[in-house]
Nucleic acid binder design. Structure first.
Lengths: 215, 215
DNA sequence: CCATGATAGACAGTAGAACTATCCATTGGC
DNA sequence: GCCAATGGATAGTTCTACTGTCTATCATGG
């Protein structure tokens, strides 16, 4: 198909598709002549994934590119490590890069040790360099700064619930047809479900609050 | 204290503090003369909360303003409804506003009915206009588009886990000294814990994946 | 009393991100 | 042959979150 059809079928404007190609989120079409290229269903699938990551999950173009390249690597290694695929991206929130560009001096006490303790207590064997660890450390530091009485032991019950969530996630990946599908499904499940899980938490809080305090 | 001290103690630059005051995230200091104002510990607290919401949670200035005003309302009504406080903000992800500005025609089948069914099944009594509902509907639509076999019934186990999470959240709020503290703590817990919960999910996935597939 | 440095408030400027528009030299299809 | 569509390049736009500059004070130390 030509770019106009790709645009029509995906709902993404032609200039935007060109932009994604420039930014290497999407491979260019197969050139049939110097000014004519052919796109296929793969392009359409990829484009929909891009729109989902950017639009539904709210990832930046840069983070999206990283996720897509991690997806490609996973596919080539035939070895799915869910979570690690998305681990490369900054996990929606703390701008660690900014924090490291300019060591603010104000940097609160590091909580990396607390995170180590948490992982040990849980018996989780996870990659040391995972950005998720940094997110946890930052959060613990912020909580401490606000005087909220929640240290790493307070995260334990949350972590147990996360374990169960992860089991549900992995269950949903069972029986994937091929590695490519599985990797893509892993990305979709991890990334797209994030806003939904937070939404469920909000609604559950609302309900629980009403129950306790009588809404 | 003067603005320079507020800046030094918070680690936020003077121009940025002025910017937050202009944007009405932070009330101005008490003027002691036309060009001299006095700031107190309340300002410092508020400023730290602002930085946490923007920096740690990654909220926009606009969303932060809405959260803070919701916080003020809750405080005045003496009636804490956790979740609803943060329910006013777009929940990190789907840009619903954009979707409504320009009805793309591509809009997939609405899943609002599915969300209603989910709420009914769970027995949750939640506000109809909650943006969290829209997030759920969007997510279900996206999953459907990707052919992931996960409909609203598939969200049920996740919702049960969210219930338990919410109970932990509410427990952490018990025994707050005063309504202001409680409201602020609710905001901190709901907002700041979000990246941490997602990080825990990522790490749990990594661990679970290693267990199942042998990392 | 006066020099110096800080301050409030107004407004302009900047940097980065994510598009969006314009151009031009083709070229496929009628 | 004609013309809308295309690929590729480059420039422009919009938005957000700051950051810088300016001016008229004003506090404070000498």
């Amino acid at each position: 198909m030509r770019i106009s059809e790709l645009s029509r079928r995906s709902g993404v404007s032609v200039p935007t598709i060109k932009y994604y190609i420039r930014e290497e989120l999407l491979p260019g079409g197969r050139l049939t002549s110097p000014n004519q290229a052919d796109y296929d269903e793969q392009h359409l699938r990829r484009l929909r994934l891009i729109r989902a990551l950017i639009g539904v999950r709210g990832l930046s173009v840069d983070a999206t590119r990283q996720v897509l390249s991690a997806l490609a690597e996973q596919q080539s290694s035939q070895h799915i490590v869910l979570g690690l695929a998305l681990g490369v991206i900054p996990a929606a929130g703390p701008d660690r890069a900014a924090a490291e560009r300019e060591p603010t001096e104000h940097e609160p006490t590091k909580q990396d040790g607390a995170v180590d303790a948490l992982m040990r207590e849980l018996g989780w064997r996870v990659y040391d360099g995972s950005p998720a660890r940094a997110v946890l450390a930052d959060t613990l530091a912020s909580l401490q700064e606000f005087g909220v009485a929640l240290d790493w032991t307070g995260l334990l019950p949350y972590a147990r619930l996360a374990e169960q969530t992860a089991r549900l996630d992995l269950d949903a990946l069972e029986g994937a047809p091929d590695p490519l599908e599985m990797a893509e499904r892993a990305v979709v499940l991890t990334a797209l479900l994030e806003p939904a899980l937070l939404a469920l938490r909000r609604l559950a809080q609302e309900d629980e609050s009403a129950r306790r305090h009588g809404g």
